[in-house]
Design a protein around this nucleic acid. Structure first.
Length: 286
DNA sequence: CTCCAGGCGCCTT
DNA sequence: AAGGCGCATGGA
C-alpha cells in the first residue's frame, strides 16, 4: 500500500503512544500489544497474543479509507499542494475516544515529546500490563476512566501533568459516574458534539475538535492551535495583518468536506519543514 | 538565567 | 464580547 505511511501517520501528533525502532512501530491497542511494519504487499501486523479478528486494527488505521479522494477534495492551492507533497501517505487514525480525550487534555501547553512522557507515565502507573513478546519493553493499557476516577489528584500530579491533573480527574469522574456519556457523542451533529464536549473542564474548542476529528471521525472538525495559526498566516496571508476572527472564518470555509484532514497535512507539514529549517541553521552555525 | 510549549478558565474592560 | 494572565513542568 504505497499511499499509506505509518511513520508520517503515527508520528504526526495525533496519537502519543506508538514507538518506532528501525522502521518497525510498536504500541498498544485496547489490550493488545501490536507491531506494525511496511512490506511490499502492504502493512504487516503482529500481535503478542493470538487475535481472532484484526478488524480493530483496520478500524484504527482506517485502512478502508480512500486517501486519493480525500486529497482530491483539498483546495487546489500552492500551500496544500506543498503540504500534500511533503506528507505523502499521512493518514488520520480512528482512536478510542477516552484515550484521545484524556491525552489531549494533557496536551495543553506541552510539546509533543512531553505529552508522550506524561501519557507513558500515566499508563505505566495506572494501566494494566499487557503481554509483550520476549525481549520487548513492558507495555500497558491506557487506564480506564473508572481507574483514574478512583485516584487522588496527587496521584495524577505525580505523573508530571501539573495543572492539568484536576481537569483529567474531573473528566474521568464525570465519565465514570455516567454523568457524561462519550458514546452519546457519536449520534450528534458536529456543532452539538462540540457544545457537549466543551462543557467538560479543561476541554475548550481546540481539544474538543481534536477528539471530534481523531476519535469520532468528524471530517470537518478543524483543530486550531498555535501551529495552524502560524501555518495559515505564513502560507495564506504572508505579510498581512489578519485577525483571529478572519483566520477562524477562513479555516471554517476554505478547506472543504475533509477540512480536518487538510488541517493534519498543514500541521505536519509546518512542523516537519520547521524542524528541517532549524536543523539546517544549527548545522550551518557549527 | 529567561522563554515558551498542539490551551483553558477566570478575571478584567 | 473580547483581551490579558496565571497555571506546572521541563527543555532549549
Amino acid at each position: 500500500m504505497s499511499n499509506y505511511d505509518l511513520g508520517q501517520t503515527l508520528a504526526s501528533g495525533q496519537c502519543f503512544r506508538w514507538n518506532c525502532v528501525d522502521g518497525v512501530w510498536t504500541g498498544v491497542l485496547g489490550r493488545h500489544w501490536l507491531k506494525l511494519e511496511h512490506a511490499v504487499s502492504g502493512i504487516i501486523v503482529h500481535a503478542a497474543e493470538p487475535v481472532a479478528d484484526f478488524g480493530f486494527v483496520e478500524d484504527f488505521l482506517r485502512l478502508g479509507e480512500d486517501l486519493e479522494s480525500v486529497l482530491l477534495s483539498f483546495p487546489d492551492d500552492p500551500p496544500m499542494r506543498a503540504a500534500v507533497a511533503s506528507c505523502r501517505g499521512l493518514r488520520l487514525l480512528r482512536q478510542e475516544p477516552w484515550e484521545c480525550l484524556a491525552s489531549f487534555i494533557l496536551s495543553a501547553t506541552k510539546q509533543i515529546v512531553q505529552i508522550r512522557q506524561i501519557v507513558a507515565l500515566l499508563c505505566e502507573r495506572f494501566g494494566d500490563p499487557v503481554t509483550v513478546p520476549p525481549g520487548e519493553p513492558s507495555a500497558w493499557t491506557f487506564p480506564s476512566a473508572d481507574r483514574l476516577a478512583g485516584l487522588a489528584e496527587s496521584d495524577l500530579r505525580a505523573c508530571k501533568m501539573g495543572f492539568r491533573a484536576p481537569y483529567l480527574l474531573a473528566v474521568a469522574r464525570a465519565i465514570a459516574t455516567g454523568r457524561f456519556d462519550l458514546e452519546a457523542i457519536r449520534g450528534l451533529s458536529l456543532a452539538e458534539a462540540r457544545t457537549r464536549l466543551v462543557t467538560l473542564p479543561g476541554v475548550g474548542p481546540k481539544i474538543a475538535d481534536c477528539v471530534l476529528l481523531f476519535a469520532y471521525g468528524f471530517q470537518v472538525a478543524f483543530p486550531i492551535d498555535v501551529w495552524i495559526i502560524k501555518a495559515l498566516k505564513q502560507l495564506y496571508f504572508p505579510k498581512r495583518r489578519v485577525s483571529q476572527k478572519q483566520l477562524h472564518h477562513f479555516a471554517a470555509t476554505h478547506f472543504g468536506p475533509h477540512a480536518g484532514y487538510a488541517q493534519q497535512y498543514l500541521f505536519h507539514y509546518m512542523r516537519t519543514s520547521h524542524r528541517q529549517r532549524d536543523t539546517k541553521t544549527t548545522a550551518s552555525r557549527t
